[in-house]
């Protein structure tokens, strides 16, 4: 019994490494074959995966089904886009701040702004749970969405073009492989970070908040601030993914803030496996594969996405991870 538990844990770890390895190799091979389009496609997978890993912390481990994470994804994107715009026009940022095109500085902004917004949204939303939590997070995200649409300085409904990608120290981010490597490093860091968080004392408290918040309060840990902290960390990770996504596409628009985007991030998790470390990576991979290859034949590819989602939810409630390595283990 104990042995099989360990074997499953080992199998899951092995699978995590295999998935990351395959993504890495695919990017290298397609770059070597001079298929820049496909390298970018892999970067797209990686960025979606980062967003999913972020949301998974709240949704999978903390049981907070946020239908508002597009707000953080989009705000990350807009911060990257707005910085790039001001930098290329050589104008100053809001409030007289010097504009920058350095990703690291931009990400610092993304972290601060997403954390503050998530703190505000979380403070209010986490007073509710279940369906009400879903609706409140959705409404906050919709507010941000309409705010972006009605702000003509930054493109309004049309969105904002990024004339040249933001820079990462001295590297040429226009090179597909360099950009992929930046995204991939961020993914590795977020996966590592969340694996540590999940297994830490905080992570234990967070997961018990999901399983049974009465138990958590009874031992003397208030569930509310634990969940709020996780919600903020989750939002920050998703925000960074958004900043990368804007740079990848050299474009940011209110679509990144839409509720469909929030839904898609949830779908990555559902497809791959809720509360599984590699769940969102697998899910994002499958999503982009369907989007690209079935989307190449018909614009109604989401019909197939729906079917796949239906099958996964009905027959493998626990996503692809459960199909491959079985039930989730708590160490």
């Amino acid at each position: 019994m104990l042995n099989s538990t360990h074997q499953k844990g080992f199998k899951e770890k092995a699978l995590n490494l295999i998935i990351l390895g395959l993504i890495f190799v695919t990017a290298l091979v397609t770059y070597w074959l001079d298929q820049g389009y496909y390298v970018n496609l892999v970067s797209r997978v990686v960025i979606f995966a980062i967003a999913g890993v972020g949301l998974n912390l709240a949704l999978g481990y903390g049981g907070m089904v946020s239908l508002g994470h597009a707000a953080f994804f989009g705000i990350g994107g807009y911060i990257a886009g707005i910085s790039a715009m001001h930098f290329s026009e050589n104008t100053s940022f809001i409030a007289g701040l010097d504009s920058t095109n350095q990703m690291l500085t931009i990400w610092l902004f993304v972290i601060i702004i997403c954390a503050l917004l998530a703190l505000f949204i979380g403070l209010i939303s986490l007073r509710t749970s279940g369906v009400y939590f879903i609706m409140i997070t959705l409404s906050f995200a919709q507010m941000v969405y309409y705010f972006a649409i009605s702000w003509p300085d930054y493109g309004g409904e049309d969105g904002l073009l990024i004339s040249s990608r933001n820079q990462f120290l001295g590297n040429d981010t226009d090179n597909e492989l360099v950009f992929f490597l930046i995204c991939f490093t961020v993914l590795l860091l977020t996966v590592f970070l969340s694996s540590r968080i999940i297994r830490s004392r905080f992570g234990t408290a967070l997961q018990v908040a999901r399983m049974n918040d009465v138990r958590l309060a009874t031992v003397g840990i208030r569930p509310y601030p634990i969940k709020l902290t996780a919600f903020v960390i989750s939002a920050v990770i998703t925000g960074i993914a958004g900043a990368l996504f804007a740079d990848l596409n050299r474009f940011v628009s209110p679509d990144m803030l839409s509720w469909q985007m929030s839904g898609e991030i949830i779908i990555f998790i559902l497809l791959g496996g809720v509360g599984r470390l590699s769940g969102p990576i697998l899910g994002a991979t499958l999503f982009v594969l369907l989007e690209t290859f079935i989307g190449g034949y018909t614009e109604h590819w989401k019909l197939f996405l729906g079917l796949v989602l239906l099958i996964v939810v009905l027959y493998a409630n626990g996503g692809l991870m459960k199909m491959v390595v079985g039930e989730k283990q708590h160490d």
Partner: peptide, 11 residues
């Protein structure tokens, strides 16, 4: 009183 430790594995 140590539930805000994020790094060390609890198990």
């Amino acid at each position: 009183g140590s539930s805000y430790r994020f790094w060390k594995p609890a198990a």
